[in-house]
Computed example of a mutant assay.
Amino acid sequence: MNDDRGLNRDGTIAREGSLGRVRAGFAPVVAAARSRIAEVFGPTRLDSAYLYGSIPRGTATPGVSDLDLVLALRGEPTGRDRADADAVEAELDASYGQIDGAGILLFTADTLLSALERHDMGFFVACLCTPLLGDDLAARLPSYRPTSLLARETNGDLCLALPRWRRRAAEATTDSERRALSRVVARRAVRTGFTLIMPQWGGWTSDLTESAELFARYHPHLPERAEQMRLAARTGRAPSADPAVLSLLVDDLAPWLAAEHIAVHGEKAPRP
């Protein structure tokens, strides 16, 4: 593996996490998540389960990082499935001080394997997720390279999030609400900025700081945008309640990135 650019020797994107990288302090949380998901969902509902984010990458910070999971279900997610996932999230968050929240995404296995999701959620499962339960769907997905197609399908829809973010920013009345939104917007902005230049760089990283610095390297003529990306990377790690920071992200950086990304890579294929 080429660790400098997150690639395998053949130039395909390497899976970035593994259970072996989970730090000792987070091992009990992961074990509990595996046990509870298996117990609550069972083999009739659950096809497979995955970890993603800083915990399987081995970069998680105790008391700060959250636990991120994806469940591939055998049927379309129901209200019961969502309620059960919410209950598992709450239980894990309340039981383990090592994490600051838990989040479970629900999809069908068929959706994750579909042609429409091949270069978005399929890529996510194959390269950014770590198997936790069940047969790994990555075995039924292709290898991926840092292409313009991948950039388009992973982040070519930022424009669709802008109205929702503006609405939430206008309605936010507490520091907690502003921090939560700043984290979401900042992380998405950094990832969009990274995939904007990802094919030129020829690799993959999920590290926010590295992503911002790579953007700056490929845009030396845009020093103001580079500084905004660095701010976004810092905010993604340590969310801000400052309305000025949130406004900069939502009203300035994100719209520019959305337009630039579409101009360079095109717009993501529409979903139903």
Rank of each mutant, 00 (worst) to 15 (best):
R234N: 07
R166V: 09
W256F: 14
R187K: 13
A254H: 00
R230E: 06
A161Y: 14
P223I: 13
T235P: 00
L246W: 01
G266R: 05
T192N: 09
D157W: 09
R168Y: 06
N155M: 11
A180G: 11
L158I: 10
R179W: 08
F194V: 07
E153Y: 02
E171M: 14
F215I: 07
E210P: 01
W201D: 01
V190W: 00
A232T: 03
L249A: 02
G266V: 05
A189V: 06
S143A: 15
S176A: 15
R166H: 12
L248Y: 01
T147P: 03
S176E: 15
L149M: 10
E260K: 15
A170T: 09
E210W: 04
R217L: 11
P163S: 10
E153A: 02
R188G: 00
A212M: 03
E213C: 07
R179L: 11
A226C: 07
N155I: 00
A244G: 10
F215P: 02
S148Q: 08
A238N: 13
T154G: 09
A189G: 06
R191G: 09
L249V: 03
P223W: 14
D242F: 01
S206A: 15
W204F: 13
A212Y: 01
L162C: 12
V245W: 00
A241V: 04
A258N: 07
A254W: 00
A244V: 10
E213L: 14
R230F: 09
P220S: 11
R225C: 09
V185S: 04
S143N: 10
A259I: 07
W204T: 02
T174C: 08
L181W: 02
A169R: 10
L248K: 00
A232W: 00
D252E: 15
Q228I: 02
V184R: 04
C159V: 12
E210Y: 04
E210A: 14
F194I: 06
A169K: 03
T147I: 03
P255M: 05
I262S: 11
A180W: 04
L253I: 10
W256T: 11
M198N: 02
L158G: 06
N155H: 15
H221D: 15
R225D: 13
P163M: 09
E227C: 08
E171P: 00
I262T: 15
E260T: 15
R167C: 08
S247H: 13
F215R: 02
W165S: 02
S182D: 01
A244L: 12
A186M: 05
P243H: 05
A180E: 13
T195H: 08
W204Y: 15
L160T: 15
Y218N: 05
E210D: 10
Q228C: 06
A212L: 03
D242E: 07
R217K: 12
E210V: 14
E224Y: 11
M198E: 04
A161S: 15
P142S: 08
H219S: 13
P199W: 05
V190E: 00
P142W: 07
T174W: 08
Q228A: 11
F194T: 04
P243V: 03
C159P: 02
E177K: 06
R237P: 01
L150T: 03
A172C: 11
D252H: 12
A170F: 05
E171W: 09
L196I: 06
R188F: 00
I197H: 07
T154S: 13
L208E: 03
H261L: 05
A172P: 09
A238C: 09
T195V: 07
Q200D: 15
A151G: 09
A212E: 01
A161W: 12
P243N: 05
T192W: 04
